[in-house]
Design a protein around this nucleic acid. Structure first.
Lengths: 211, 211, 211, 211
DNA sequence: CATGAATGAGGTTTCATTCAT
DNA sequence: GATGAATGAAACCTCATTCAT
């Protein structure tokens, strides 16, 4: 009774933690089966709680999904932006660093399922899709475009359609992660490093033999 | 009712035609909302028939989905393979021709939704995903790899990881089509030709300035 | 096939009929157990249909309830109004006629449960309560007030607070019907005619001995 | 925690007091929403305690409801009975006194919701309804019948159906209180005193003009 | 053949009740 | 004693599938 103020603090942290745990479980299952085909009972079981407990943390199934997207990616985008702003040095290094960062922060973590999930569900959640495009997709693309423009200005890169190139590069970076959570499972394995190496070499030097 | 016995052939053809019509409707809606979230009633309404009639043409919802995938793409892959086998001339032309063909046969038709659909639903239809990977993805990739290897052998392309490069190129070709049917709707428009031009220039010449 | 135009007409009538049948069942159970405590499955069983069928006729439980109220009483009020307007003759006869009509049209039919139901549920359905007050309660009260005022003007009734008296009379008429569907079941029976006779004599002559 | 062993008496009284507080809250909400639609969490919040604490005072939701009815009215009935037995004087005064008492003890206190509540829930709680009819409704009616009979014997009231008249009077007294907690909220206001005056005048003198 | 009313299994959501703190 | 997080039974509601017309 005397130190009651401790309990709510502890509870608050626990509550936060529990909510994150549920979000992780939801992410895994939503990515695997899609939003509609995922039963809340499965999410609960996966999180080790009961069906009813879910509703102590999230208003309903849709709210659970929205929190998933809104709370898990934006911080990472901000990180990348800071990194680019602070960077001094050759742009191809920066480019490579960003791509590696993508794999480290997203591609190899549980977040890697999010792009696939958003692609799958955008038709049913237009608001969320718009939010994601605005706060993630567009920002990342702008970032990459900036880097390329900086490289052109520095004479490091040839004069090219910076945004077009940024889009091409992003496709080649994001798509494998999307496949990883979908058709990739049924395909022959292909080493990630090898893919990344081929990608970097291709975009830096092209494939045509120089005369 | 009176002259039904006269035209079994016509009936057969009509049946085929009707089935295709339903498949088209199903494709549109499955792509938009996903398999699970699409109600058969909506498919029926979209096809201009009644709910019950669907079952005269397809055993059940799942069968409808499977037929969709099995009947609509494989022929196109075969076409591409024939084209490559018959081709004589510089490989970068062939490459460009294949990419243009992709846009013409898939990217700009209703089939363009299929890759998005399969990515979304692979978790719930492993058999189908496997079938698609084996009969479409892997075959197209092999085809592209062959073209690149042919270019290398001809001294037209530099020595590179042919399969790796093929995968990178495919990502950059398929991903925009996937986006078109998902997040793309909520993004700023970007002209397709411009994207393709940036793509071709990038993979042919790279972006680094030649010393 | 030739007389297809019959089928939809027949269907329309059947549909109407079926909907009314469901409303009757819902009325019985809502009156007995209340809205919240009545399970739709019970309504369905009582109506001899399945749970799902309910939803072909009513959007949801609440809509079912609202239709119940909106479609089943207002016509009766209009009837009474016409009757009063058309009446020529002594007002105490008219009064008696109205009270008898109440018993015949409401008190002894399945509609008799509605007042009890609305009293019970008004807290949870304010809109509906307001609708009922406006379109039923207030109109009937106004009607009765008019009759009394007419009687006063004709020298038939003493000068009195017409609206107040109307409210008193209505209480004594409606309350027994409400009890009939609630506590009345557990009370000793009391003949309706006897109640009505006591009521008429009381309001006409009072209970005090004349000097 | 330290001196708990000293004041069991105080604790006993506090417990009693707390229980009554909970009962008051339950009464308010049960009347407003009905038993089924009232959540125990709301009762708890209204009483300023936690959900779990309720169960320290009442076995379950049903027990809470039953105690509500059993403990809050019977004493009032006994009071009225004593009053009638002790009374000496003209019966119309006694009648008026009883009706005024009804308004003072019930109609204007939180108990006024009980009749509405019992009417609403009698279908789901037959035992309770029976108890209430036996210990409240029937006793009050018998009391009123007695008064009327006494008035007739004294030559104060005309020869009439005493029980029938008692029932009519009770309807007109109880119904407004029931309305007050239901449809009344949505109706135009009508002054209570005015209603009571109209009521008394009507039952004493009737509405027909004396020749 | 074609229809769409009917079904009921299965999903989402609520809430009375329990119990560790 | 008091709490409120956790539970799971039971309610509402949806929709794939069937079948009489």
């Amino acid at each position: 009774m005397h130190f009651n103020h401790i309990s709510p603090a502890k509870t608050r942290a626990q509550k936060e933690h529990r909510a994150n745990h549920i979000l992780e479980s939801a992410l895994v299952l939503f990515v695997e089966k899609g939003f509609s085909a995922t039963r809340l009972e499965d999410v609960a079981r996966h999180a080790g709680i009961s069906k009813g407990t879910l509703y102590l943390y999230f208003e309903n199934k849709e709210a659970l999904f929205k929190r998933l997207v809104e709370e898990m990616v934006v911080p990472l985008v901000q990180n990348a932006e800071h990194e680019v702003n602070a960077y001094q040095g050759p742009c191809n290094n920066l480019l490579q660093q960003l791509i590696l960062g993508w794999w480290k922060m997203i591609g190899k973590t549980s977040l890697s399922g999010l792009p696939k999930l958003l692609i799958s569900e955008s038709g049913n959640f237009p608001d969320l899709a718009e939010y994601y495009v605005k706060n993630v997709v567009a920002r990342v693309r702008r970032l990459l475009t900036t880097v390329i423009q900086r490289g052109i200005a520095a004479g490091e890169f040839i004069e090219c359609d910076a945004e077009g190139v940024a889009r091409v590069i992003l496709s080649a970076v994001v798509f494998p992660v999307v496949l990883q959570h979908s058709l990739g499972i049924y395909d022959t394995a292909f080493e990630n490093d090898r893919y990344q190496r081929a990608h970097m070499e291709l975009i830096l030097n092209g494939m045509v033999t120089k005369r």
